[in-house]
Structure formats: C-alpha cells, structure tokens
Design a protein around this nucleic acid. Structure first.
Lengths: 256, 256
DNA sequence: CGGGACCTTGACGCTCATCAATTGCAGTGG
DNA sequence: CCACTGCAATTGATGAGCGTCAAGGTCCCG
C-alpha cells in the first residue's frame, strides 16, 4: 500500500484514463494518492451484489470480470465483460445502488478505492472527471451495440462480433497480443453474453472453425482471418471509442 | 427566446434534474441562461445522425424520440425511447461522435442547447453536473435491463416489461396520467425495440389483450391489470432509479 | 372515393432451445 | 499409476418460438 505500489497497480487504469483525456502530473498524483486496497480474487467470486450501494469502486488490474442479471426463469444475461483497466461501480459514484451482480470470470487482481475518495478526485481534478465521464459513456455505447447485436443479428454474426470486440479490447492494453488471445469464458458463459444456449454456442463456434475463421481450444481463441471475421460480425470498432493516439495498425496481422 | 420562455420550456428538464439532485437558485439560473433554440419537429424527422459530433444537445420538451442503430441486413434496433424531459447527446458533451441515429416518433418540441454552453454549466454548477451524471447512469441502467429483456426473455415477457416501463415513465412527468397512456409506436417500431417482427408483436399484443391484461387501440394503451402485467413482465422498477421524492402511490390504480 | 399506412391473420419453415447421452480432460485421492 | 469425480465440450434428435411470405382488412387523409 505504499504510493509506489499503488502507482504500479493503478497503471492500467491511469493509462486508460490518460488515453481518454490528457492528465497532468497533479492529476496522476491525485490518483496515486487514493487509499486503495489491493486484493486477489478467485474465479467465480462475487464482487458486487445487485442493489448494494458500493462503498468501494473496483478497478480490475488483472483478469476478467463480468456483470450480469438474473431473470425469473433462472436465465442469466451477462451485460458487460471487464478487463484490465476497467472500472466497476460508476453508479456508486452517484450514490445509486448496483444495477447488476458482478462476478469474476478468472482469478483476478483488483483494487478497491473508497467511493467517496474517488468522487473527491473527480471533483477536484476536472481532467480526471472528464476522462471518467468519457469512460462511462463508452461503456454505455457498448451496451447499445450489444443491444443491436442481440436484438437483430443471428447467432453466427453475434459470435463473430463479440470475438472481434474482445480481441481488439485485449490488444488495447496488451500491445504484444497476437491474433491469439485468452478467452476465459465457458461456452455457457458465452451464451449468457449473446443470449444463446451453450449448445448453440458450441455449434456456432464449430461453424466458424469449419470456415477457418477461428481456431478455438481450451480457453485460447485464435482469429485466423480478421477481415473475414469482422465482415461476418459486421464489426466496426467506432463504438468502442478507441483513442486515436493508440496504434491500431497491425489489426489484421495474423501469424499465430 | 426570452429568459422566461426558456424557463418554461426547460421546466421538464429542470424538474427531472432537480428530482435527481437538489438544485439551488443559482443552479436553476445557470440552466435558464442557456442560449437554447426551441424547435418544432414533425414525426419521423432525423435529429442526429450516427457519427456526427453534435454542436447541440437536444432536450425533449414534448413528444417522443427514439435512438436506433441499423444492422447490415437492413434490420433496425431501437436502443432508447426518449420522452418529455429526456436529454439527447450525452456523448457530445465528452466530444464523442453520436453512437446512434436519433429520430422523432411523433411530432415534438425540442430545445437545442449548444454543447459547449451546457458543458460549461456542468463544470460551474457541480450540482447540475451531479444530476446529469446520475441521469446518464440511469440511462445506462436501462440499456442493461433491455439487454436482459431481449437476450433472455420471451416475446410475451418482453412486451409486458416494456409496457410497464413506458407506462411508469409517463406517469413520472404526467401526474394525471391514468392506466391509459399514449403509445405512439407502430407495431413495427415496437418490434424494433424488442427484437421482434411486427407480425409477432401483433400476436403478442393480441395475446395480452385476450388475457385481459391490456387494451390497445389506435396508439392508446390501457393497462387493465397492472399487478398481473408487471408479474408477466418480471417488472421491477429499481433500474429506473425513480427518485424517492416522487409519489409512486397509485401505481396499481386502474380506472380507465 | 382512392391511396397509403398500419393492422390482422393464416400457412409454412427455419433458427435456435431443449433434452439427453457421450466424450474428453484436469484434479484428487488411493 | 490408475480409478474416481466433476465440469466443460460435443453431438444427435426433436420441437417450440418466432420469422417470413402473402393476402386481406381498417382507418385516415387528401
């Protein structure tokens, strides 16, 4: 919990905010001074319960987290997948209860920052507030894209779209990532994202494999033909608001 | 465009913000001083094109507006329905391009406020910024509920849920509204909200009518049995973040 | 009175859900 | 080293829910 430790763990988060909005030294210092608590999480742990008013906001440092809702017949809908640098608990900053459950998909490292302290930084450092506002709107933009995906596209298209999104988002924080990336979701969880059953997810993935668009084995996904997969998924990354400062070249590069 | 006129037209918007967060006289004055342009809109007009960076934010004063996306096969997904007091163009405040098209559903009255001026008010009046932040998060919360609705519920449940939401939202700004309310969407548009076809919407509405849960004729929807419809739609209004200061009593009242 | 939205209804078929059985694989303990 | 267990992936058979196509019907407006 020394400042230097904070700074190190906060790095993915700070980097993300800085890519949204120029942060000066004071902005970064204010973030580094947050009294955060680092924590290790096992796969499948609940981080937030729906309705709870979070005293802490949660930053994902390493690993994958999902947010989901449960419907009456027991069905589950995953409404967001969070990765390195993503923030959980925007609502808490406005004093609202959590609108979803949050649960880790993998073992993960997180930082818990007191909501009040983070809110204070947002007030006192307008650049940070601006970056967070942009971040929050981007996440809303993803919700809307997912609505169109689930509401109006068939299983093959939905899946291709999701794979493109996840691949691109991983490359945003991991510059070394190849066409091959970790996909730590079971097929049932993929179904919960896409509004499908695990059985149909399996068939859809097999279909994309047979077309040689992807290869998929034991949690590792390889995109064999980015251009074709993106076309199959009608994928256009504008909705992710990828900052122009980030290198998007090599997006089509493939060598496994 | 005199101040008093502004204040009158701004009233639905100001009221909504004030219900989210206490606004003092100066806050309200700052809003009233916005150099807004009032405008009348016909049904079906485009207000925003996807990708455009809005120089104006748009406040809906009267009427209905939808935001939607178009997918490759020509399908349309409506991702939001805006009513009196709702704001269009949060993204513009962060300098982002519009993530959706926006189009009026009915004839409407709107106010256009220069993005920069509104952004300045948000900065200078923290209470206003806070209220707007809450407003934006609430809209994100609705997206997530819609995701669960479309992804994991069948047609009957989806429809019942949507009708409950629209009914409740109308009663939030129209205290005199009865169980009967305006539903100015064609069945095709309802389908575009729910991820269904107009044919299936028709059959679903007929089904709910046959069950005596609703009555529906020519753009006018009457909820005959609120409790049963809410149960059928698994409707729980927490995701709308209805301010506790608003009277929610009489929600079950029915007399047509 | 004609035209154009929109609503309504039937027949048919495809996508995807459901049910059920089998396989493969990783961990665990004997 | 090998049963034993448990979860995830895989595959087939079947059918329901919803889409598609097509043909009126109704209402409104000029």
């Amino acid at each position: 919990m020394s400042p230097s430790l904070n700074a190190a763990s906060l790095a993915p988060f700070t980097a993300k905010l800085a890519s949204r909005c120029e942060l000066d030294v004071d902005d970064q210092a204010a973030l580094a001074a947050l009294p955060v608590i680092e924590q290790r999480i096992d796969a499948g742990e609940f981080l937030v319960r729906q309705g709870a008013i979070g005293e802490h906001c949660i930053l994902v440092v390493k690993g994958f987290v999902q947010r989901h809702k449960i419907v009456a017949n027991g069905g589950r809908q995953i409404v967001a997948i969070l990765m390195e640098g993503d923030l959980l608990g925007f609502e808490a900053l406005a004093g609202l209860g959590a609108d979803c459950h949050a649960q880790s998909l993998t073992a993960a490292r997180i930082l818990k920052a007191p909501t009040a302290a983070l809110a204070a930084v947002l007030r006192q450092r307008p650049a940070v507030g601006q970056a967070m506002w942009t971040e929050s709107l981007t996440s809303a933009s993803v919700f809307q894209e997912w609505l169109a995906n689930i509401g109006r596209r068939d299983a093959r298209t939905r899946m291709a779209h999701l794979l493109c999104e996840l691949s691109l988002r991983q490359r945003l924080f991991d510059k070394h990532a190849q066409a091959s990336f970790d996909l730590p979701l079971t097929q049932e969880q993929l179904g919960d994202v896409l509004g499908l059953t695990s059985v149909h997810v399996n068939r859809t993935l097999k279909g994309l494999s047979r077309e040689d668009l992807i290869r998929y084995e034991r949690g590792r996904m390889t995109i064999l033909q980015w251009e074709k997969l993106a076309a199959a998924g009608e994928f256009d990354d504008v909705y992710l608001n990828v900052p122009k400062t980030l290198d998007r070249a090599g997006r089509g590069a493939v060598p496994a």
